[in-house]
Structures are given as C-alpha cells and as structure tokens.
C-alpha cells in the first residue's frame, strides 16, 4: 500500500527520521534500541490514541497494544517513508482493532462524566495542553465515525482517498463524515465559546 501520509508536517518536523540508527538496531532485535525508540514514541502514540478514542480510561491499554504492534511490525518497515508516518499507521490500525473488539463496552464509557477542561498537569505547557484537552472533549461528543474521519484528515493529514483506503469505505462516505463532523464540531466549539 502506498504511504499513508501524502505530505504534511512531518517533512519539517523530523526530516531524517528514517535514518535513526535505533530503527535498524531495533529491527535487528536489539532490546536497548527498541526500548529507547518506544520510550520516545510513547507520548505520540498516547496522543494519537486519545484523539481516536472517547475518554481516557483505555488510552494506556490501547497505547500498549500499539507499542506491541510496532515492535512486531518493525521487521516490515522499509525506510521508504517517514518512520513516524509508518508508526502512526500501525497505531491507528491497532486502535481500530482494539475498538472493534471492545465494541460492547462503548455504552459504559459514554456514561463516564465528561472531564473538565482544566486538567492539572505538572509540567505541561498549560495553554497547549488545555487547548488539546478541550479539543478532545469536543471530539468525545461526536460519533466515532465522524471523529475518526476528522482525526485522520486534520491530525494525521491524510487525504480523502487515503482515508478511504484506511477505513475501507467509499470516497463520498468519507467526505460526508468530514462535512458532518466539521459542522458538529463548529457548533460545539461555538456553543462552548458562548458559555465561556
């Protein structure tokens, strides 16, 4: 399959990721390299999972499965694209697989109290952290389908055809989910501003 990310911010964020010597060392089974790589990837993995799933309860479980999937998938990584883009794709799939297995638990999570925007954090950049937490509390109110389309498009910067491939759904369905998701998100954000 072609690379998921057609372009995007990674070209500027980490231009030489594929050449990180730890990647090859990890592929060759060196535990220290794998550990170091996973430690570095973990915050990104957790953030991606949180964007994709409702609530915080399952984030670490899914992130751990994502890390395992990354470990197992490393031998299949070809240095053709950016490592982070490849890793994101693996984590997205691990997350979708987890969600599929846990479908029956969705109802329970929807009963969880919505988290307040101001979340205590020791060393986070307060503005940025609060902003992102605010976004996911809004995403938590969308349908899972719309949420996934929005996250893949706006956070992972996949094109619509790439999302079609990833989700296995038709082009028009993706466009529709994006359109409805944006409308719902705008309404939620505006309502929040009105309240504030």
């Amino acid at each position: 399959m072609s690379e998921m990310r057609s372009s995007g911010s990674y070209a500027t964020v980490a231009p030489r990721e594929a050449e990180d010597p730890r990647i090859q060392a990890a592929i060759q089974g060196r535990r220290d390299a794998t550990e170091s790589l996973l430690m570095e990837l973990l915050p990104r993995v957790r953030n991606l999972v949180r964007y994709l799933v409702r609530g915080d309860a399952d984030v670490d479980d899914i992130a751990q499965e994502g890390l395992i999937a990354l470990m197992r998938g490393l031998p299949t990584y070809r240095s053709e694209g950016h490592f982070h883009a490849w890793a994101d794709r693996v984590v997205v799939r691990a997350t979708f697989a987890w969600l599929k297995r846990a479908r029956g638990r969705e109802a329970r999570h929807s009963d969880e109290p919505m988290e307040l925007v101001a979340v205590p954090s020791e060393d986070a950049q307060p503005d940025e952290y609060v902003h992102r937490r605010h976004l996911v509390t809004l995403l938590d109110k969308l349908s899972t389908e719309q949420r996934h389309a929005l996250v893949l498009h706006h956070v992972l910067e996949l094109s619509v055809p790439e999302i079609c491939t990833e989700l296995g759904i038709p082009f028009e369905t993706v466009r529709s989910r994006l359109r409805l998701g944006r409308t719902a998100l705008r309404a939620l954000a505006s309502a929040g501003e009105g309240e504030g």
């Binding site: 915050p43 992130a63 609060v130 809004l138 498009h153 706006h154 956070v155 705008r186």
Partner: peptide
C-alpha cells in the same frame, strides 16, 4: 492535504506530535 477547512478548525486541530496532550500526562 486537507479537503477543505476553515479558520476555526485550523485553530482547533494541530498535527500530531509527542508534546503535551491530548493524552493525559503520566
């Protein structure tokens, strides 16, 4: 890359990274 968008969404969404949030800090 984006299909369409507006200023509000551009403000809301940011590309994925390993910085703070949206996952809770651990």
């Amino acid at each position: 890359v984006r299909e369409e968008g507006d200023a509000l969404l551009e403000d809301l969404f940011e590309p994925l990274d390993g910085e703070a949030g949206p996952a809770r800090r651990i």
